[in-house]
Amino acid sequence: MKVRAENHAMDCLTIPATGRTPGVSFDFANGHLRMTGESYPDDVAAFFGPVFEALRGFLDDPDGGPIRFDMELLYFNSSSAKALMNIFQMLETVAKGGRPVTLTWCVEENDESMRELGEDFAEDLRHVVFQMREMPAGGPP
């Protein structure tokens, strides 16, 4: 699968969502990162490779300001779950270094198992501020 990424001097990374891959909007200039939609890519490396590369470049900048990460995925497969855990560990590392990081785990109302997964995923976050946010149900199935 080909992913069309718009990459303006690393100010932002925008990948539109498809049926199987999530929407990525990393606004590096304002420190606001979002992932939306559903994630079960055919080729995990091909999709997450560029995402991780851009993210690493952004997190390595020693003068970076606060970071807000919104996890708004409604559905993800096991590989995407591992990719998310890796992203969270990267965020945890910079937060430990003193950079303020807020991670918002968004769940549709009534999606109890997704809420439990969020709590589970937050288990290893000591320095990242983790919060849960409810969204109205009825997004894409």
């Binding site: 096991s78 779950a81 997964l117 290893d124």
Partner: peptide, 12 residues
Amino acid sequence: REQQRLVRVSDR
């Protein structure tokens, strides 16, 4: 812990 988490994701 990640392995346990992945097992739960997979079961879900």
